[in-house]
Nucleic acid binder design. Structure first.
Lengths: 262, 262
DNA sequence: CAGTGGTCTAGACCACGCT
DNA sequence: GCGTGGTCTAGACCACTGT
C-alpha cells in the first residue's frame, strides 16, 4: 500500500520501495521484479502509476525491462578498463623497445577485437582547426571508427589528421587498419613521435543513434573523450585530434596515471 | 500530425519532431517548447502521448521542464575544467617552488569556493583496505566533503587516510580546511610527498540523494572518480584513497595530460 | 495459450507561476 | 484567474516471450 497522506507522490513511493532492495543488494543483478499487475495489486494503484515508478528506476539505470519477460535488476559493474598507459606502451612499441603493442583501446586480446572504419577527405571545421592549429577549411583526413570487443560495440570515434601529413602514405589507407600500436605508432611511422596526449572527459546521455550503435539500455550514459596528440620537444605541435570518442559508461572505466616529479 | 501507418510509435514521432530543431540549433538553449496542450492539438494525440515524448527528451538531457512555466531547451555546455596538472602544481607549491596553490579542485578563485566537511574515525572496508594496503578493520580517517563554487554544489567526495599517518596532526583537524594545496600539500606536510596519482573515471546516473545535493535536472549523469595517491621513489606506497568523487556532468570536464618520454 | 511489458485514449484534480 | 506542468484513474488493444 502507498500512504495517501504523504506529500510524496504514489509513484515515487512505489519507486522507493523497489529501489531499497536493489541498492541494499537484497535483489542482486538479474533478479526479476514483480510484474506490473502484481505491483498494481500490491500497492493498490493504477497501471500508469506503476509504470511511472518503473520508468523512474529505468532512468536511474537500476533496472532494465524486456517486453514479454519482465523487469530485471541491471548489472552495474563496468569491467573494461582503458588505461592512459597504453599511449606510453605504444610509443615504446613504435620505437622498437617492446615487442608487442598495447592491445587496442580496450587492452583486450587482438582476437576478441574487430574494427570498422571509413576514411574521407574533409575540410577542417572550427573545432578541428583550433585543435590542429590549422585554418578553417584546410584539408584533413577524417577517420570514423566503430570498435567491437567480443562482437559488442564498445567505442565510436572520429579522428582528424592534417591531410598534408598523411597524403599518399600507408596511414591514409583504411586497408592498413587495425594498425598495430594505433595512432601513436602511425604518427611515429610518419616521423612524428607523439610526446604528449591531452584527453578531456565528459559524460552525457547518448543520442538515439549512439544508443542503437552501442546497444545501450535506458538509463546508461556515455563517456565522451576528446583527445589531442602533440609532438616536439616542447610538446606543443598538434598532429591529431579525436573530437568524439564515445564509450558506454556501463562497460568502461578510464584509468589515468599522473606522475609527480619535479 | 503523426503518421499512424508508421511502425514508429506516436510518442517517438513527436519526440523526433521536437528533437530535430534542438539538435540543429534552431531552438537554442533557453528556448521554450510548445506547451503540452499545443502539442496535443498539433499532433492530434492524447496528453499521455505528449508526456511520453517530452519525458523521453528530458531523459536524454535535451530539455528541462518547470511546473507552471513550461519546457525549455537545456544548456549542455559544461564549463568548469578540472585538470590533472593541479596535482603537479600543488606538489610544487608544497615544495615551496611556486607561491600559489592550484585554486581548488575546480581551479576557480578561492573567493568563489566554499567547502563543507566532516571527519570521523572509521574502520577500513574491503575496498579502502585494498587501496591503502591495509587489513580490513584497520583504523582510517574518513573525510566527507561537499564543495561549492559560486554557491552551487559541484563535488561530493569521500576520502580515506591511514589513521596511523594522521593521528594528532593538523591534517586530522577539520578546522584547518580548506588546506591550501589540498591533499597533496597535506601529505607533503606529513613527510609523504606524493609521487603518483591514479584516477579511475566512470559515469552513471545519480542516486536521488546525489541528484538533490548537486541540484541536477533529469537526464544529467554524474562523473565518478576514484583516486589513489602513492608515495616513494617506486611510486607504489599508497597514502590516500578517495573512493567516490561525484561531479555533475553538465558542468564539469576532466582534463588529463599524458606525457610520453622514455 | 496466458502472461508480460508497450502504446494509447479520455478525462480528472492538483500545484505552481505569472498577471 | 488562467495557463502551465504534475499526478492519477479506468480501460483498451498490441507485440513479444514462453509453454
Amino acid at each position: 500500500m502507498t500512504d495517501p497522506l504523504s506529500d510524496r507522490p504514489a509513484y515515487r513511493q512505489v519507486a522507493d520501495r523497489l529501489r531499497a532492495p536493489i541498492e541494499s543488494g537484497e535483489w542482486p543483478a538479474g533478479h526479476k521484479l514483480p510484474s506490473e499487475s502484481e505491483l498494481m495489486e500490491q500497492f493498490s494503484v493504477s497501471r500508469v502509476t506503476v509504470r511511472l515508478a518503473v520508468g523512474a528506476l529505468r532512468a536511474e539505470g537500476l533496472i532494465l525491462t524486456r517486453q514479454g519477460r519482465g523487469s530485471f535488476v541491471r548489472d552495474r559493474a563496468a569491467n573494461r578498463r582503458v588505461s592512459s598507459t597504453r599511449y606510453q606502451h605504444d610509443a615504446r612499441y613504435a620505437a622498437g623497445r617492446v615487442a608487442e603493442p598495447a592491445t587496442g583501446f580496450g587492452n583486450s586480446p587482438e582476437d576478441r577485437n574487430r574494427l570498422e572504419c571509413s576514411f574521407r577527405e574533409q575540410r577542417a571545421n572550427q573545432q578541428v582547426a583550433d585543435f590542429l592549429g590549422l585554418q578553417v577549411g584546410e584539408p584533413v583526413l577524417e577517420r570514423h571508427y566503430v570498435h567491437y570487443v567480443d562482437e559488442r560495440p564498445e567505442r565510436i570515434s572520429t579522428s582528424y589528421l592534417p591531410m598534408e601529413l598523411v597524403k599518399d602514405t600507408p596511414v591514409a589507407d583504411p586497408a592498413n587498419e587495425p594498425w598495430p600500436g594505433g595512432t601513436v605508432a602511425q604518427l611515429a611511422s610518419l616521423g612524428q613521435p607523439v610526446t604528449r596526449v591531452i584527453e578531456s572527459v565528459r559524460a552525457r546521455m547518448p543520442t538515439p543513434d549512439e544508443s542503437t550503435t552501442l546497444r545501450l539500455s535506458a538509463g546508461v550514459p556515455v563517456l565522451v573523450v576528446t583527445r589531442r596528440m602533440l609532438t616536439g620537444a616542447d610538446r606543443d605541435h598538434p598532429v591529431e585530434a579525436a573530437v568524439d570518442i564515445v564509450l558506454p559508461a556501463d562497460r568502461v572505466v578510464l584509468d589515468y596515471v599522473v606522475d609527480l616529479a619535479d
